[in-house]
C-alpha cells in the first residue's frame, strides 16, 4: 500500500480522488454504492446565496463520448444547505468541500462567509465560470481583472483552503491561473465544462433549452490534460485536475501532468462506484511501479 495522501493548499486528503461538483449531488445519493469515507474529498453541488430554479427542461444532450448539460446551477441556496444538508454530512470522515457560485461579487462573498462559519467544512471551491450579471453577463473566469476581483474579495472573507475552479473557455488558461494565484487562491482546479452545442437535425432545433451548454465526459480529456499541464507549469500552488476521467489510468495521467489531486465527474453517472475504483487503481499502479507515495508521480511530465 503506497502513501496516497496529498495536499491541495493547506488541505490534506487521504487520497487524491475527489468528486466533481454537480455530478455527485451531496454524496449521500451514492452511499449505496461506495463507502463515502474511502473518497479523498466530496465536492458538493454548486451552492449560491439564494435558491435557484435553474434552466428549463431539456437540460441534457448526449454527444459522442460525452454530454452537454444546462442545469443552470439549480440549488436550494446556502441557508438550506447549512440547515438541512450539512448536518447529514457532519459525520463523514472525508473532506466535504462546498462549490460556491454567484452572479455578483457580493453573492460570492456572502455565500463564502456563511460557509466559513461551518466547522466541518475546511475548503471551498469557487466556481468562477458563472456569468457576471452586473457586467454584461460575461463569465467571471474569462478575464484577468475579473478573476483578480472576485478571488481577492472572497479571499478577504474566507479563511480556510480556497480552491478556484477555472473555466476552459479562455484563450490563455495559464494567465488566468496566475491571476487566481496572485489574488490569494490556495489551489486551482480545472477544467469546468467546455461550452458546446447540440442540434437535432430532424427537428431542426437545438436539443437543450438554452441552446448552448457545458460539455463534459470522456471526450474532453485531452483538452483538460493539456490545460492542467500548462497551469501546473505556470503556478506554484497545487493544481486539481479534472475533465473526462473515466478510470484510474486517466486519473494517473492527470497526476503525471501536474495535478496533486483529481476530481471525477460525469463518470459517476456511468459507474456510480467509480470513485473508489479509481483510488484503488492509483494505489495498485504505485505498487506495481514501486513508488512509495503518490507524490512521486505528481508532475513528472
Amino acid at each position: 500500500m503506497a502513501d496516497l495522501t496529498t495536499n491541495i493548499g493547506g488541505l490534506t486528503l487521504k487520497n487524491p480522488v475527489m468528486t466533481a461538483s454537480g455530478t455527485f449531488g451531496f454524496g449521500l445519493e451514492f452511499a449505496d454504492f461506495v463507502d463515502l469515507n474511502e473518497i479523498g474529498g466530496i465536492i458538493v453541488k454548486g451552492t449560491t446565496l439564494h435558491k435557484r430554479e435553474g434552466n428549463p427542461y431539456p437540460r441534457l444532450a448526449e454527444t459522442p463520448q460525452g454530454m452537454i448539460n444546462a442545469v443552470g446551477l439549480q440549488n436550494k441556496g446556502v441557508d438550506y444547505f447549512i440547515e438541512h444538508t450539512n448536518p447529514q454530512l457532519k459525520n463523514l470522515s472525508t473532506e466535504v468541500i462546498v462549490n460556491v457560485a454567484g452572479h455578483s461579487i457580493d453573492d460570492y462573498t456572502a455565500c463564502a462567509e456563511k460557509i466559513n462559519a461551518l466547522d466541518n467544512i475546511h475548503a471551498i471551491e469557487l466556481n468562477i465560470s458563472c456569468p457576471n450579471v452586473k457586467e454584461g453577463g460575461m463569465s467571471f473566469g474569462t478575464s484577468v481583472p475579473m478573476v483578480e476581483k472576485v478571488v481577492g474579495a472572497v479571499r478577504k472573507v474566507y479563511k480556510k483552503t480556497l480552491i478556484v475552479k477555472l473555466t476552459p473557455n479562455v484563450t490563455d488558461i495559464a494567465e488566468i491561473a496566475k491571476a487566481a494565484e496572485g489574488a490569494g487562491a490556495d489551489s486551482v482546479s480545472l477544467i469546468n465544462t467546455l461550452m458546446g452545442m447540440a442540434i437535432d437535425a430532424e427537428k431542426r432545433k437545438p436539443i437543450i433549452s438554452t441552446i448552448t451548454g457545458g460539455l463534459s465526459g470522456a471526450c474532453v480529456k485531452p483538452v483538460a490534460l493539456r490545460m492542467v499541464w500548462q497551469v501546473a507549469k505556470a503556478v506554484k500552488i497545487p493544481v486539481v485536475g479534472l475533465g473526462g476521467i473515466m478510470n484510474a489510468t486517466d486519473a494517473i495521467e492527470f497526476l503525471l501532468a501536474g495535478a496533486s489531486a483529481v476530481e471525477i465527474g460525469t463518470a459517476n453517472f456511468i459507474d456510480p462506484a467509480i470513485t473508489v475504483k479509481v483510488a484503488n487503481g492509483i494505489n495498485e499502479y504505485l505498487d506495481r511501479h514501486g513508488f512509495k507515495s503518490v507524490k512521486d508521480i505528481i508532475g513528472v511530465i
Partner: peptide
C-alpha cells in the same frame, strides 16, 4: 419519461415543472 443522465438525483438534468 424525461431524459436522464444519472438516475440518482445527482445531476438535476431530468427535472419537470
Amino acid at each position: 419519461e424525461n431524459k436522464m443522465a444519472c438516475g440518482l438525483g445527482a445531476c438535476l438534468c431530468c427535472v419537470t415543472e
